[in-house]
């Protein structure tokens, strides 16, 4: 049986206790909510901690408030299953419902939280392996080694952002609240991420993501398409999150297109958005935008399926996402 390394476990009930515990020794303390990302990583020994702070008992982190006509707040400790069941999410943010209900499997959604999915460690087939396997390849730069085996000439790590929730939430313009003993701040979710497989989050080690703030859903249509091998369990090998605001004539007032699993962060298809914004959402525009969306994607051979095929699928999936929104 694969087992965890030993650690000290703290189970606070208040947010103050959490931030204090985190501030004590941020470098060797980790937060655990659902445990579905951190615990496998610790069992494989590529993440470690002297102290784990369990968020399970922190009631303040849970719950969904608001009805979509104004801002909606989702506690970072809300489970993915709770979000799937939420009527507000289903009706006001159908794309978020699609994204969250596509995460992993029903069992993992009963455990995993929104905050956990947004902070999901970047993934790579050279990294998400056991200690013994990584020893066999001489480790990689994300942990212990000095090479990125996916791109050996590269000075950076190319592990893949694999969150399903983030592309859609960034497209929606969601913001997140970060708390620490030093205080609170709210930043756009998009700014939480950086395109680096190691330093993929911009938050400080002593900060905890506590809330996700969704803007009013008024007029915004959303969808999320996910590409993966199986009907369940699998991480995305491509995610496309789109938020669209159309004018009365059906023209594109505003659009956000975010790609997941193609780089180390959720990736905005800016040229595609620019092509669509202010114009008609006709077949030609969709085709051209889809083609433009392919450029920022950099799928590599570090997950399921051939990278070149995954790259080709960006265009197909963006076109499908846009076409489906047009019809809604």
């Amino acid at each position: 049986m694969m087992r965890l390394p030993s650690f000290r476990l703290l189970s606070p009930r208040s947010m103050d206790d959490v931030t204090v515990a985190l501030a004590d020794d941020p470098a060797s303390t980790r937060l655990v909510a659902g445990g579905t990302d951190l615990l496998p990583n610790m069992k494989r020994r590529h993440q470690s901690a002297k102290t784990l702070v369990s968020l399970r008992r922190v009631e303040a982190l849970r719950g969904i408030q608001g009805d979509g006509s104004s801002e909606v707040r989702i506690g970072a400790g809300t489970t993915l299953a709770e979000i799937c069941r939420s009527d507000v999410v289903k009706s006001a943010y159908p794309g978020l419902h699609e994204a969250v209900s596509s995460i992993a499997s029903p069992l993992l959604r009963n455990m995993g939280t929104l905050g956990g999915n947004l902070c999901l460690d970047t993934r790579c087939s050279y990294y998400n392996q056991t200690e013994e396997w990584r020893e066999a390849i001489g480790y990689c730069m994300k942990e212990c080694g000095d090479v990125c085996w996916v791109a050996p000439g590269s000075s950076r790590c190319w592990a893949t952002s694999s969150t399903d929730a983030a592309p859609l939430l960034v497209a929606l313009g969601a913001r997140v609240k970060l708390d620490s003993v030093r205080g609170s701040r709210v930043i756009p979710l998009e700014d939480l991420y950086a395109d680096d497989g190691i330093a993929y989050l911009t938050k400080e080690r002593d900060e905890i993501l506590t809330e996700v703030l969704l803007p009013s859903s008024d007029k915004t249509k959303t969808t999320y398409l996910k590409l993966r091998r199986r009907g369940s369990i699998d991480f995305p090998v491509l995610g496309v999150g789109v938020a669209l605001v159309q004018d009365d004539a059906g023209g594109v007032e505003d659009v956000s297109i975010l790609l997941g699993a193609v780089r180390s962060q959720p990736t905005r298809a800016k040229a595609a958005e620019d092509r669509l914004r202010g114009g008609a959402l006709d077949d030609d525009a969709i085709a051209e935008a889809a083609q433009l969306a392919r450029k920022p994607a950099a799928p590599l051979e570090n997950t399921d399926f051939l990278a070149r095929w995954r790259g080709a699928m960006v265009e197909k999936f963006v076109a499908r996402a846009l076409t489906s929104l047009r019809g809604r």
């Binding site: 499997s105 087939s125 998400n128 392996q129 396997w133 066999a136 390849i137 001489g138 090479v147 085996w149 050996p152 091998r229 199986r230 009907g231 369940s232 369990i233 699998d234 991480f235 399921d304």
Partner: peptide
């Protein structure tokens, strides 16, 4: 791995996540 850097020859996907066994769906 690239031969100039490593002689490794490893099972690519020795896990139930990456070895794709079909689900109900």
């Amino acid at each position: 791995l690239p031969k100039n850097r490593s002689a490794a020859l490893v099972h690519k996907i020795p896990s139930m996540l990456d070895y794709k066994s079909p689900t109900f769906l």
